Amino acid sequence: MTELDHIALYTSQLEVIRHFYEKYFGATTNEKYVNPRKGFESYFLSFSGESRLEIMQKKTVANGANSEGTEYLGLTHFALSVGNKEEVVQLTERLRADGHKVVGEPRTTGDGYYESVVLDPDGNRVEIIAS
């Protein structure tokens, strides 16, 4: 059986992104990995269950050409399950109140998920779903 172990994202604001996922999604973080020779730093963020998000920073990685929050070919979003519909609504409103952009209001989608869509500080689309 194949399982998705983790998704990795490059960022230019490693500590801001780490704090965002810890604060709003309860991620726990490993000790920062630093490779000074390559100018590389990273964290693995763990969520309940086995899923992880690797966030990485490297000065030589160019900023993407995609506009904040736009959809494009390739990885376009990932979903984090927070429990139930009420928790989706509450977290969405908390993020909005804290100044984060909500690009999809809480709703039941055609494929049966109850979800909202927010942008993390780098503009990555994060679906907040009810499990």
Rank of each mutant, 00 (worst) to 15 (best):
D98K: 08
T28M: 09
K85Q: 13
E87V: 12
A8E: 03
E22W: 08
G64S: 10
S42W: 04
F20R: 05
F20M: 04
T76W: 05
T108V: 14
L75I: 10
M56T: 13
G49T: 02
K23S: 12
L45P: 00
F40N: 02
S51A: 15
R37C: 03
Q57A: 11
N84W: 02
G74K: 11
L80I: 04
I7K: 06
A27C: 01
S51F: 05
L80N: 00
T70P: 01
Y24M: 02
L80V: 02
T28I: 14
Q13C: 07
V16I: 07
G83A: 08
V89Q: 04
D98T: 05
T109G: 07
F40R: 01
Y43A: 05
K32L: 06
H77L: 03
R96T: 13
T28R: 09
S48C: 15
S48F: 08
S46V: 04
I17M: 14
E105A: 14
Y33M: 10
K32V: 14
E22G: 13
L95R: 01
Y10A: 01
Y24H: 05
Q57W: 05
Y24L: 07
M56K: 15
E22S: 15
T60W: 11
K23L: 09
E22L: 12
T92P: 06
E68I: 14
A65D: 10
V103I: 10
K58S: 13
A65W: 11
V102L: 06
F40A: 01
H19T: 13
F20Q: 01
F47N: 00
A65Y: 09
S81N: 09
T109R: 03
M56P: 09
I17S: 12
V16M: 06
G74H: 14
S51T: 11
G104Q: 05
E15D: 15
N63E: 13
V61M: 05
F78V: 04
Q90A: 12
D98R: 04
T11H: 00
G64W: 14
V34C: 13
S67P: 08
T29M: 10
S48Q: 14
V103H: 06
E54M: 12
L9G: 09
Q57C: 11
G49W: 03
R18W: 08
F25G: 00
L45C: 01
F25W: 03
K38H: 03
G26Y: 00
S67M: 04
M56C: 15
R94M: 11
Y72P: 09
P106K: 02
T109A: 10
I17T: 10
E87M: 09
E31W: 07
P106T: 00
S12W: 01
A79C: 09
S48I: 15
L91F: 01
T28H: 14
Y33E: 10
E15L: 15
Y43S: 09
A27H: 00
F25L: 08
V102D: 10
D98V: 02
E54Q: 15
L45S: 00
A8R: 12
M56F: 06
T60D: 13
V102C: 06
R37H: 04
